[in-house]
Design a protein around this nucleic acid. Structure first.
Length: 271
DNA sequence: ATTCTTGTTGCATC
DNA sequence: AGATGCAACAAGAA
């Protein structure tokens, strides 16, 4: 599930613990997602430490503790962060539980275990955090860098390229489709075919979708309005909210892609 | 029963 | 060498 805005939503679910001190750390040691979370070292770093702040970037989160410990969270496909009710027993998919003095108890939950937790206990900031590409909503996300990237991936369909985290941090399957639909580009358009005008349009639409998603989904998971493709993409017989025409589905780069043939025409990218 | 999945990685192939 | 495509990971939902 989690893309940029969902990650921001889940980050806030643990925020009630900011300022509190960890009293216990429970790790499910055989879960794949905990492979980079050595139980003894994690306890040493976190128990007795205070949660100072949290950040979200791309599809990742960092929880920063006093004493210099960082807990990195990647939600994968089905991961989530939850707060346990007082006295609630963790479920079978709660692979990490943090208990704080005076509450709350919070859990990392992930049935499919595609997510990943990691610990940084040294000085400074971990490379897995500082190495994340510039956020799409930051000024450092420049059109020229984007154009270079598209040129280097010239023969790939634009849909597959938008999913590459090294340049489009936080974009996932539904956001990529939403961007291409709003901008009017065919998902199979070759990345190398994008002209200067199209690159600018793509960049502006990327930023618009990130802003909208953070405002609506990142806030409290409010239902997106029906004017978005989002609400129609999985409906059987769903129709394009702008053209009222039918929506099509096709697999690109191994991912289900939803698009509106009346709106997204090959060739529009050449400008 | 079968097929699907909003993510990422590693490997084979071009 | 770098780009591209695909299976694998695992569990639950439709």
């Amino acid at each position: 599930m989690p893309e940029l805005a969902e990650v921001e939503y889940f980050r806030k679910r643990w925020d009630r613990a900011v300022g509190r001190v960890v009293t216990a750390v429970e790790i499910h040691p055989r879960a794949r997602c905990c492979a980079d979370l050595p139980p003894a070292a994690t306890r040493r770093a976190l128990v007795g430490a205070r949660l100072l702040r949290s950040e979200a970037a791309a599809k990742q989160m960092a929880f920063v503790f006093s004493g210099g410990a960082w807990l990195g969270v990647h939600l994968g496909m089905t991961g989530s962060l939850a707060e346990l009710r007082p006295g609630e027993t963790p479920g079978r998919h709660d692979h990490l539980v943090l208990r704080f003095r005076g509450g709350p108890d919070v859990a990392f939950r992930d049935p499919r275990m595609f997510g990943r937790l990691r610990l940084h206990a040294g000085p400074g900031e971990p490379a897995w955090w500082t190495g994340i590409a510039p956020a799409i909503l930051s000024p450092a996300f420049r059109a020229s860098d984007m154009a270079d990237f598209l040129r280097r991936r010239a023969r790939s369909p634009i849909k597959a390229v938008l999913l590459m985290q090294e340049r489009f941090p936080g974009i996932g399957n539904w956001m990529a489709d939403e961007v291409l639909w709003r901008a009017g580009f065919h998902p199979k358009a070759k990345a190398g075919a994008f002209g200067p005008l199209a690159v600018r349009r793509l960049r502006a639409t990327l930023r618009e979708v990130c802003r909208d998603a953070l405002r609506v989904i990142g806030k409290d998971w409010s239902d997106p309005p029906d004017s978005w493709l989002f609400n129609h993409r999985w409906d059987k017989g769903g129709r394009c909210p702008r053209t009222r025409g039918p929506l099509s589905h096709v697999t690109i780069g191994g991912r289900t892609t939803c698009w509106s043939p009346r709106r997204q025409v090959l060739g529009a990218e050449r400008r």
